[in-house]
Each structure stands twice: as structure tokens, then as C-alpha cells.
Amino acid sequence: MTTFKLIINGKTLKGEITIEAVDAAEKEKIFKQYANDNGIDGEWTYDDATKTFTVTE
């Protein structure tokens, strides 16, 4: 398992979430669903070196 981080830079929601997953593709799906469930629609980036997804509205 690898630890992945999501950084949220939303208009109404900001924060960080850290979760373990098998791979980045699995985690991306979970993070995007979390963002969608919380009304966050923005630009996504991924840094493989730090295993960090960022979504910015």
C-alpha cells in the first residue's frame, strides 16, 4: 500500500486528506468522488514524486 494525499483548494472547502491505496488510479477515483460529493469542481493535478493530488477551484 502507498500513502496518497489530496490537497483541496476550493472556494468553500480547503484542507488535506491522506489515505492509503494500492495505486494512484484507485486513489484518483476515490478522491474525485469525494470532491464531487462535496461540490468541488476544479482543475486536478498529480505529483508522482510526492504522491499528491491537488484540486483547485
Score class of each variant (00 low, 15 high):
Ile19Leu: 10
Ala25Pro: 10
Thr45Ala: 06
Ile8Leu: 07
Gly10Trp: 11
Lys51Val: 06
Glu28Cys: 15
Glu43Trp: 11
Asp23Ser: 12
Phe53Ile: 04
Glu26Ser: 10
Gly42Asp: 01
Tyr46Asp: 00
Ile8His: 02
Ile8Met: 04
Asn36Gly: 07
Val55Tyr: 10
Asp23Pro: 07
Gly42Cys: 13
Thr45Tyr: 08
Asp47Ile: 02
Tyr46Arg: 00
Asp48Gly: 03
Asp48Met: 04
Tyr34Gln: 00
Val22Gly: 07
Asn38Leu: 15
Glu26Thr: 08
Lys51Met: 07
Ile19Tyr: 04
Glu20Pro: 07
Gly10Phe: 14
Asp41Tyr: 14
Ile40Asp: 02
Asp23Ile: 06
Trp44Gln: 00
Ala25Asp: 10
Thr3Ser: 10
Asn36Val: 12
Ile30Trp: 14
Lys27Gln: 15
Glu20His: 12
Lys27Ile: 15
Phe4Trp: 04
Ala21Gly: 14
Phe53Pro: 01
Asp47Met: 02
Lys27Cys: 15
Phe4Glu: 06
Gln33Asn: 05
Thr54Leu: 05
Asp37Arg: 07
Gln33Trp: 08
Val55Lys: 04
Ile19Ser: 07
Ile30Gln: 04
Ile19Pro: 01
Lys51Leu: 05
Asp47Glu: 03
Asp47Thr: 01
Asn38Val: 12
Tyr46Ala: 00
Asn9Gln: 10
Ile30Gly: 02
Ala25Ile: 11
Gly42Met: 06
Gly15Lys: 13
Thr56Lys: 05
Phe4Ala: 06
Ala24Gly: 13
Gly39Asn: 10
Met1Arg: 12
Asp23Cys: 12
Gly10Arg: 02
Phe4Met: 03
Glu16His: 08
Gly15Pro: 03
Asp23Leu: 05
Val55Gln: 05
Thr54His: 09
Lys14Ile: 13
Gly39Met: 05
Tyr34Asn: 01
Lys32Ala: 09
Lys29Tyr: 11
Glu16Gln: 09
Ile8Ser: 01
Asn9Thr: 06
Asp47Arg: 00
Thr50Pro: 00
Val22His: 10
Met1Val: 11
Ile8Lys: 00
Lys14Leu: 13
Ile8Thr: 00
Glu20Gln: 12
Thr52Arg: 01
Phe4Cys: 15
Lys32Tyr: 09
Ala21Thr: 11
Lys5Asn: 06
Asp37Leu: 10
Glu28Tyr: 14
Lys51Ala: 04
Asp48Ala: 09
Ile30Asp: 03
Thr2Tyr: 15
Glu16Trp: 13
Asp37Val: 08
Gly42Gln: 04
Thr12Glu: 11
Trp44His: 00
Asp41Trp: 14
Val22Glu: 10
Leu6Ile: 15
Tyr34Ser: 01
Val22Ile: 09
Asp48His: 05
Thr56Gln: 03
Leu6Asn: 01
Gly10Leu: 15
Gln33Cys: 10
Glu43Tyr: 12
Glu43Leu: 10
Ile40Met: 05
Met1Asn: 11
Glu16Arg: 07
Ile17Lys: 00
Asp48Gln: 05
Lys51Gln: 07
Ala35Met: 15
Glu20Ala: 11
Glu26Lys: 04
Met1Trp: 10
Gly39Asp: 05
Asp41Ser: 11
Phe53Ser: 05
Thr54Trp: 11
Thr12Gln: 08
Trp44Ser: 00
Thr50Met: 03
Lys14Tyr: 13
Glu43Asp: 11
Asn36Phe: 13
Gly15Cys: 15
Asn38Thr: 06
Gln33Ser: 08
Ile8Trp: 09
Gly42Arg: 03
Glu43His: 09
Thr2Met: 12
Thr52Met: 03
Gln33Thr: 04
Tyr34Glu: 00
Ile40Val: 06
Glu57Gly: 08
Phe4Asp: 05
Glu28Lys: 04
Tyr46Asn: 00
Gly42Asn: 00
Ile17Met: 04
Ile19Asn: 01
Phe4Gly: 08
Glu16Pro: 07
Lys32Glu: 08
Val55Ile: 10
Lys11Ala: 07
Ala35Leu: 15
Thr56Arg: 04
Thr2Asn: 06
Glu20Tyr: 14
Glu16Gly: 08
Asp41Gly: 07
Ala35Ser: 03
Ala25Asn: 08
Lys5Thr: 13
Lys27Trp: 15
Ile7Phe: 05
Leu13Ala: 05
Asn36Pro: 02
Lys14Glu: 08
Glu26Ile: 08
Ala49Cys: 09
Glu57Met: 14
Ile40Lys: 01
Asp41His: 12
Ala21Leu: 14
Leu6Phe: 14
Gly10Ser: 10
Ala24Val: 13
Ile30Tyr: 11
Glu57Leu: 15
Ile30Thr: 02
Asp48Val: 05
Gly15His: 13
Lys11Cys: 15
Tyr34Lys: 00
Ala35Val: 08
Thr12Trp: 12
Leu13Gln: 07
Leu13Ser: 06
Tyr34Asp: 00
Asn36Tyr: 14
Asp47Cys: 05
Phe31Leu: 08
Phe53Cys: 15
Lys29Gly: 06
Gly10Val: 09
Tyr34Val: 05
Thr3Val: 10
Gly10Pro: 01
Val22Thr: 10
Ala35Thr: 05
Thr2Trp: 14
Thr54Asn: 06
Ile8Val: 08
Thr2Gly: 05
Gln33Val: 04
Ala24Cys: 15
Gln33Gly: 04
Gln33Tyr: 04
Asp48Glu: 11
Glu16Val: 13
Ala24Met: 12
Gly15Trp: 15
Tyr34Trp: 15
Glu16Lys: 05
Asp41Arg: 11
Tyr46Cys: 04
Asp48Tyr: 06
Gly10Tyr: 12
Thr52Cys: 05
Phe53Leu: 06
Gly15Val: 15
Ala24Ser: 12
Tyr34Arg: 00
Asp41Met: 11
Glu28Pro: 02
Asp37Lys: 07
Gly39Cys: 10
Asn9Phe: 12
Thr54Asp: 01
Glu57Arg: 10
Ile7Val: 09
Ala21Ser: 07
Glu16Phe: 14
Lys11Asp: 04
Val22Ala: 11
Ala49Leu: 11
Asn9Tyr: 12
Ile8Arg: 00
Val55Glu: 03
Gly39Val: 06
Lys14Cys: 15
Gly42Trp: 15
Thr2Ala: 06
Ile7Asp: 00
Lys11Val: 12
Glu26His: 08
Thr2Gln: 08
Glu28Leu: 14
Phe53Asn: 02
Thr12Phe: 12
Glu26Asp: 14
Ile7Arg: 03
Glu28Met: 14
Thr52Lys: 01
Glu28His: 08
Met1Lys: 13
Met1Pro: 09
Thr52Val: 03
Trp44Val: 04
Gly15Phe: 15
Thr3His: 08
Lys14Pro: 07
Lys5Met: 07
Ala35His: 02
Leu13Phe: 14
Lys14Val: 13
Val22Phe: 13
Leu6Asp: 03
Lys29His: 09
Asn9Arg: 08
Asp41Phe: 15
Ile7Ser: 01
Ala49Ile: 09
Asp37Pro: 02
Leu13Asp: 03
Ile17Val: 09
Ile8Pro: 00
Phe53Asp: 02
Asn9Glu: 04
Asn36Thr: 11
Ala24Thr: 13
Ala35Pro: 01
Ile30Asn: 02
Ala21Gln: 04
Tyr34Cys: 13
Asp23Thr: 11
Asp23Glu: 06
Thr56Cys: 09
Thr45Ser: 13
Met1Leu: 11
Asn36Trp: 14
Ala25His: 08
Ile8Ala: 00
Ile19Asp: 01
Tyr46Thr: 01
Ala24His: 12
Phe31Pro: 01
Trp44Pro: 00
Leu13Thr: 07
Ala21Tyr: 07
Tyr34Ala: 03
Glu20Ile: 13
Thr12Val: 11
Asn38Trp: 15
Thr56Ile: 09
Lys5Ala: 03
Asp47Lys: 00
Gly15Arg: 14
Gly39Trp: 12
Val22Arg: 08
Tyr34Ile: 13
Gly10Cys: 15
Asn36Ile: 14
Lys5Phe: 14
Thr12Met: 11
Phe53Arg: 00
Ile8Gln: 00
Asp37Tyr: 07
Thr12Cys: 15
Val22Trp: 13
Asp23Phe: 07
Gln33Ile: 07
Glu28Gly: 06
Gly15Gln: 14
Asp23Gln: 04
Phe53Met: 06
Thr56Glu: 04
Thr45Gly: 03
Asn9Ile: 14
Asn36Arg: 14
Trp44Tyr: 03
Thr56Asp: 03
Lys51His: 11
Lys11Pro: 05
Thr56Ala: 04
Lys51Asn: 09
Trp44Leu: 02
Lys32Thr: 08
Thr3Cys: 14
Asn38Glu: 03
Glu16Tyr: 13
Ala21Trp: 13
Thr52Ala: 02
Ala21Lys: 03
Ile17Glu: 00
Asn38Met: 14
Lys11Glu: 06
Asn38Ile: 13
